[in-house]
Design a protein around this nucleic acid. Structure first.
Lengths: 236, 236
DNA sequence: AAATGACCAAATAGTCTCATCTAGTCAAAC
DNA sequence: GTTTGACTAGATGAGACTATTTGGTCATTT
């Protein structure tokens, strides 16, 4: 009924449209939850026809996956901009960024209010974009080598994840009165991880610089991967 | 139809019977979940008539509350027997004890498989016996005074709870391969809390002894309270 | 070629009925 | 006085059917 037809074939325009659609999804899912957000709603809000949505993604779930990948990339980019130098800062800033991103926070905490029946999905880290930062063994080894992280207790990833998880989760099960602000939580995460993982010795400037560099490199690598994954979700 | 009537009025016998009923509840709830465990089942397994169950508790929920209070007391008693001296040891042993108590673990993690519709209950700490150990301000102050815990970051309870919560929770959301054994987790909790909270300085023997004593006193107090609460749930 | 929206099958939500189950009571048995 | 288990009311669930919604397609339009 309304205008249809063919504007100039412009890949940039199409990408822009894809983002506009994801914007709509983000807003609707946050407001009303995944289950009650329909493709019609999304198309209407994004100002396109339903069929157009399906020009970008084959299924409803793929749309959501693309949204989460975009969220993840935004998170990681923001995280990199804060230029964390140490392991503690890395996850402190990660927590801060995550707490400011309701969608990812909902995914992490399995908020069924938002996720609906998507909540109990197997979290195999690849189909579902778990927002955790999986620190690589190489990165940890580097930190140990420079004396920034102690070697002893082992299970570094488990310890870090447990701490982050605990601080991000606990508030949900706490009475309102006992809760702390997002910034406070982020600071406590940084501090706790620093103390739990560091050797306690002051680092020589050279080592500190090397650690900061390694953290930067590690973050770059993650951002890179996130970018590629998002790109896969966004091609027409 | 079967024998009824009146055995000797013996309060000790009645208490024993109450415990036998709770044994039955524990076993059935663990095996089949709260929702599908009926009073008839419980009575049958405990070898009493249904009416007898109601001589002890007025409602189904009260039975379950009594069971949880008993579990909590058993946990705390076991915890006290391990005689933890430091804050880290206290929560390390707490974690160990909790991981060995499936019912309390289910309550803590909100396992809906076991708890059924009891899962989403408001956790106000009094009606529902939250299995957390709420460290008292007095105890923390004592620890700080003796140099066992640093004062700075504040929010001691929040930090400790987050760490414990994180370590106890994370395994549920982790692939089987990445999980650690219960004992390992308990050790890591102790270590992490020790490092996160301590001043780092070695304690003089006198202070160390004072800390151990304070921990013992604190535990005694909690056990005492748990005992009283259980007693309330067990009187005929 | 690109975009649309009417269309359809399939899932979901809603309604009503009937059968079963079970928390809690209480008169009777000891 | 103490214990029992048959009993009841209300909840819960199964089944059958209808109405509505919605993910996904594709003939049509520009």
């Amino acid at each position: 009924m309304a205008k249809a037809g063919r504007p100039p074939r412009d890949p940039a325009r199409q990408l822009q449209r894809a983002h506009r659609i994801l914007d709509a999804v983000a807003e609707l899912v946050l407001r009303r939850g995944y289950d009650t957000t329909t493709i019609d709603d999304i198309a209407k809000r994004a100002g396109v026809a339903k069929g157009t949505v399906y020009l970008h993604w084959k299924t409803r779930d793929e749309i959501f996956a693309a949204l989460l990948r975009r969220e993840r990339l935004l998170l990681l980019t923001a995280l990199r901009e804060r230029a964390p130098a140490t392991l503690g800062e890395l996850f402190g800033e990660f927590s801060r960024a995550l707490l400011g991103r309701p969608l990812l926070h909902a995914v992490l905490t399995g908020d069924s209010e938002v996720l609906g029946k998507l909540g109990r999905r197997k979290r195999d880290g690849d189909t579902s974009p778990v927002p955790f930062v999986p620190i690589s063994d190489a990165y940890v080894t580097e930190l140990i080598k420079h004396g920034a992280v102690r070697a002893e207790p082992g299970d570094h990833m488990l310890v870090v994840q447990s701490i982050v998880y605990g601080f991000l989760f606990l508030p949900d099960n706490l009475p309102d009165g006992a809760r702390a602000s997002d910034d406070r939580i982020a600071d406590l995460v940084a501090d706790t991880i620093e103390r739990a993982m560091s050797t306690g010795r002051e680092l020589p400037a050279a080592d500190a610089a090397a650690v900061a560099r390694a953290t930067g490199v590690f973050l770059d690598a993650i951002v890179e991967i996130a970018q590629q994954k998002l790109a896969l979700s966004m091609e027409v």
